[in-house]
């Protein structure tokens, strides 16, 4: 049985379909990621999964239960890290976990014990008695993760768990999430960081304008949508509109360039053999500011599928 199963899931605000009839499955024990530009519908989808937003139509089962019929029973078995930090500022770090445990009817003694274990797990033991407002951004996020683990959830829902963290804090967060995955906790996360999705997720759904554009493992998505290698050429002329320049390069590349995109002064060529392609381009003698060859990443696939237009 799937941990999460969505069929034709729709969330509509007036004329706008924030989530436009998506279907997906999350399997037990996997880490499933939603990627997408701002406004793609990721957070709305997450909120429907953790039962604070009722779907307009469609079917959504979480842990085998309908989100409309059994929100409390579902939420009792979920751990949620919301996009904004929602720590209780009237309470200390440790009290945040203890009081949260009470919402799950965990007895006081066990709540305190679990709070101490979780503070240890996210390396906040020495801050236990501090007010949360004195924590750094990274610490607050770690406390959010610790709080989500209070009910010992079967499913962890993480909405941008590492946004705003410095690289050290992010590495630590990844390590903790991987550790949890090894203990069998199913995870669903959204992120804007491609490395994060690649590092954590078994499968990814790329969303855009309320729909799932494509779905698959990070490696498969890169292979299917971005080729093997990328050659990036920056023209010295400021843009590629000079007479015949673009044509000469594309002509030289021939069938080696599977696809190409032009963005102002940048020409991106997707290819299976970058070295040969780069040599042929150089033979043309076109004046370039830079020419680089690199392996394709998830980001290439992402930009290819969702475009480079700004979404704010």
């Amino acid at each position: 049985m799937s941990t999460v199963q969505a069929r034709a899931l729709l969330k509509r605000y007036g004329d706008l379909a924030a989530v436009d009839g998506i279907s997906f499955q999350v399997r037990p024990g996997e880490c499933f990621g939603f990627l997408g530009p701002n406004g793609a519908g990721k957070t709305t989808t997450m909120k429907m999964i953790y039962c604070v937003l009722p779907p307009t139509s469609g079917d959504l089962q979480v842990l085998g239960m309908d989100v409309r019929a059994h929100p409390r029973a579902i939420k009792a078995r979920l751990g949620v890290v919301t996009q904004d930090n929602t720590l209780d500022t009237a309470l200390t770090v440790r009290e945040n976990l203890v009081i949260f445990a009470r919402y799950f009817d965990i007895p006081w003694g066990l709540a305190r014990q679990r709070a101490d274990e979780l503070l240890e797990f996210v390396s906040l033991t020495d801050r236990a008695r501090d007010k949360v407002e004195y924590l750094s951004g990274g610490m607050k996020r770690r406390l959010m993760v610790a709080r989500a683990l209070v009910p010992q959830p079967e499913l962890l829902v993480l909405d941008e768990p590492t946004t705003g963290l410095d690289p050290q804090a992010r590495q630590l967060a990844w390590e903790k999430l991987r550790q949890l995955k090894r203990t069998g906790v199913t995870q669903i996360l959204t992120t804007h960081y491609m490395e994060e999705a690649a590092a954590l997720c078994d499968r990814i759904a790329i969303m855009d304008q309320g729909r799932i554009v494509t779905e698959g493992s990070p490696a498969d998505l890169v292979a299917a949508h971005a080729g093997r290698e990328v050659v990036e050429l920056r023209t010295a002329g400021g843009n590629w509109q000079g007479p015949g320049i673009l044509e000469r390069i594309l002509g030289a590349a021939g069938s080696l360039a599977e696809t190409h995109e032009v963005h102002n002064d940048l020409l991106v060529l997707h290819t299976q053999d970058g070295e040969v392609l780069l040599r042929r381009v150089r033979e043309q003698g076109v004046e370039l500011e830079s020419a680089t060859l690199r392996r394709t990443t998830l980001e290439d696939a992402f930009l290819k599928l969702t475009g480079r237009r700004l979404r704010d």
């Binding site: 949620v80 929602t86 009237a90 919402y103 799950f104």
Partner: peptide, 9 residues
Amino acid sequence: AYDAVITTP
């Protein structure tokens, strides 16, 4: 504070 609490049961 309410946003956090409503993610629990």
